[in-house]
Amino acid sequence: MAENKLKLGIPKGSLQDATIKLFERSGWKVRMHHRNYFPEINDDDIICSMCRAQEMSRYVENGTLDVGLTGKDWILENESDVVVVSDLVYSKVSNRPARWVLAVAGDSPYKRPEDLAGKKIATELCHFTQTYFEKAGIPVDVEFSWGATEAKVVEGLADAIVEVTETGTTIKAHGLRIISELLQTNTQLIVNKAAWEDPWKRKKIENINMLLQGALCAEKLAGLKMNVPADKMEAVMGILPSLTAPTVANLYNKDWLSVEIVVEEGTVRDLIPQLRDLGAEAIIEYSLNKVI
């Protein structure tokens, strides 16, 4: 019987570092080698390969890779027939979906996609863009852009662009104006259909997904531990926005209780002073690697 191995694709490019950090928080250390597309990973069951996100879904579909991470946008662009296991919302900038937007020069007369009938649009997402305008019944000339897409309008090479953005800052910096959002996209964990039918590979992939999701969940949470006077416990409980019921244990001194909770990280700044005012002491905040 052949040794079981899972062929994993790591996206090369803008998501590379964020993906490797996510895997590290999930329990896998991926070590890159200079000019080498096959990183090492501390899991004998996995073989890693680097692949551009734009091409990932094709290699997963044809079985070159069993599983990979790529954007929803490139799955749609390539019309890839793969199994989407889950969404993994993370990026190099923020934990929110990116957007493919239609943008024009800030001083142009175009206000709506319909105003671009007969015009030239530059983008890297050609197939999706062409399909979008065809479905809308708007005839346009879609042209592939090899990069620096924002400059195409400024240089007079296109009337509009379709470009990906998270904050819109770069688009605005080039003097462009967004007139429509075509697609929201985020990273997805995708699997080859044959690999998904293999019991060993499926279980391995499900475990990977569980731990990746756990690491992403933990990014938004923090742990709090404190000592609370027994007679103040009800008041403290009234302000604790815990993920689940807090863990409470008696201290050696029966007049005090040890309380441990998991809360939204954004609440900690305001919560700690309130807890201190209610009599809590020895308050400890700690980060979480994974929440399953």
Results as ranks from 00 to 15, higher is better:
N227W: 09
E77M: 07
E219D: 15
A235I: 06
L257T: 04
P97R: 02
M233D: 00
G223D: 00
P39R: 03
L257N: 13
C51W: 00
G214E: 02
Q213K: 14
C48R: 05
L102S: 09
V262D: 04
R52Y: 05
K290M: 15
F128L: 14
G13K: 04
L212K: 00
I239R: 11
V85L: 13
T185I: 03
G9T: 12
Y252R: 14
V248P: 08
G13F: 01
A53E: 15
I10W: 08
W146F: 13
L88K: 06
P199K: 02
L183V: 01
S14M: 11
V236Q: 02
P273Q: 01
S108L: 06
R96D: 06
E124Y: 04
I205V: 15
G223N: 06
K5W: 01
T165I: 04
L157G: 09
L251A: 07
R58A: 12
K254E: 14
P109W: 03
G175T: 07
S14R: 11
R25M: 12
T167Q: 03
E24D: 11
L243C: 03
E163K: 15
F23N: 06
P273L: 02
M237R: 14
V162K: 15
K201Y: 07
E181A: 03
L182I: 12
L216M: 10
K7G: 00
I75A: 04
P199E: 02
A280H: 07
G175Y: 04
L275V: 00
G168E: 11
S108P: 08
E3C: 03
K204T: 09
V142A: 12
K193T: 13
N227F: 14
K225G: 14
F128H: 15
R269V: 13
D198W: 05
S287H: 10
S86G: 04
H174P: 03
L6H: 09
L240F: 08
K119Y: 02
A2G: 07
K290S: 12
R52H: 05
I138R: 13
P229R: 07
L243E: 15
A18L: 04
D255S: 15
L221W: 01
A195L: 12
Q188E: 09
N42C: 10
L6V: 05
V291D: 01
H34R: 15
A215Y: 01
G137H: 08
G238M: 09
W256N: 10
C126G: 07
V101C: 06
P113H: 02
Y37H: 06
M32C: 06
G266L: 05
K232V: 00
V30L: 15
E260D: 11
